[in-house]
Nucleic acid binder design. Sequence first.
DNA 1: GTGGTCTAGACCACC
DNA 2: GTGGTCTAGACCACA
Lengths: 122, 122, 122, 122
Amino acid sequence: MEWIFKNGIPLYTQIIDEMTMRIASGVYMPGEKLPSVRDLAMDASVNPNTMQKALAELERRGLVFSERTSGRFVTKDENVLKNLHEELAKKYFGELTENLLKIGMSGEEIAEALKSWLEDIG
Amino acid sequence: MEWIFKNGIPLYTQIIDEMTMRIASGVYMPGEKLPSVRDLAMDASVNPNTMQKALAELERRGLVFSERTSGRFVTKDENVLKNLHEELAKKYFGELTENLLKIGMSGEEIAEALKSWLEDIG
Amino acid sequence: MEWIFKNGIPLYTQIIDEMTMRIASGVYMPGEKLPSVRDLAMDASVNPNTMQKALAELERRGLVFSERTSGRFVTKDENVLKNLHEELAKKYFGELTENLLKIGMSGEEIAEALKSWLEDIG
Amino acid sequence: MEWIFKNGIPLYTQIIDEMTMRIASGVYMPGEKLPSVRDLAMDASVNPNTMQKALAELERRGLVFSERTSGRFVTKDENVLKNLHEELAKKYFGELTENLLKIGMSGEEIAEALKSWLEDIG
DNA sequence: GTGGTCTAGACCACC
DNA sequence: GTGGTCTAGACCACA
């Protein structure tokens, strides 16, 4: 991980997104132990407090849970992971739609294009 | 416009994208005269040379044309604009596919998410 | 405000509770501007970061909202405040029940005590 | 037992409360012989003098009595225990009322809530 | 060694 | 002046 631009989007937000992607994509598998806060912080070249803040938010969202003395783990709850996938997908669809609307496609055209895209990727 | 040096992407590239969007979305209409390089540069808080470089590339791509004495204009060629739309749409769909692949969603999950999202937005 | 015992219950948790009470009890009225983070921190003899953490949680719970440049305000949402009252009441009754169970009072004893107490306070 | 010097409340007061709870809740049954002062003090990580002071107060309140040669015992007087229950209950009711008043419930509302609570817990 | 809390002090954007 | 972020470094409880 390497982090750029101090301003604009807060570091901890970027870290949240990155860790979320790692969990969603299986880089960190369900039930797997995460590296320690300090290691993750070093890996990301970030202060441990900043990493802690990000992880606390992930915990609040139910993506990870912590056991005080032994470490932090990815949730094993399949529903949470399924929801995560669905939310991410919706977010991507949303961004796509926004972009397409901006260049003048109508809502119907977009819906149609999405359907034919779905068939394309099988 | 305000430009940040983010992700190491050169300023003029960002400007090209922004201007392309403006043309694609009709902020600048076909045949419309663009503001002067100097004004565009000021508006973007950018050195005129940088803006010049961006406009040259847009010209190479056929999105704008210049008449020596009277200034720069958005192309009136409908095919160009149509192609532009198609390319942008293709690009956006490509990003969507890439994102979904990255999180390892199965075809079924994607289909389900798409369906529920289409219902969401009615 | 004066804060004791460094360990046990975290300072920021105690602050959350205290601020919650102040909002619930109308010390800070709906829509009222709170003192600045720094002032609250000084008042509580606490580091601004700690106070910030507490306020962020209150914000997450919807009890306050912040406007970046002008300050933090108590929510005006009546539903939130009503829910707050209900939750607090529920919590207090829960503690009562817990306490009474702990000393093993029978239902009759409790009823009797309650009756005599209601007479006491008229 | 582990004792902290919290809230500036003297240790022996906290011990009194704890022992009172144990008697009220039947951890120490009526007529049961208590452990020696020395043992109780060790168990509580407290100076024997402190424990002695607490026990003297419990004796003054009639909750325990001592027989010079054989040790200290929990009272067998049912009225004392019944009164103890009632006093504790009243204390809890008082705390509850105080809290509810603080968040703006009227005396009548509280009384009503208490009655319906009594029905709830059967 | 783990997560978690707290302080001190700096810096930023916004107005 | 406001809220907010970030770092550096210390300390704690738990096991």
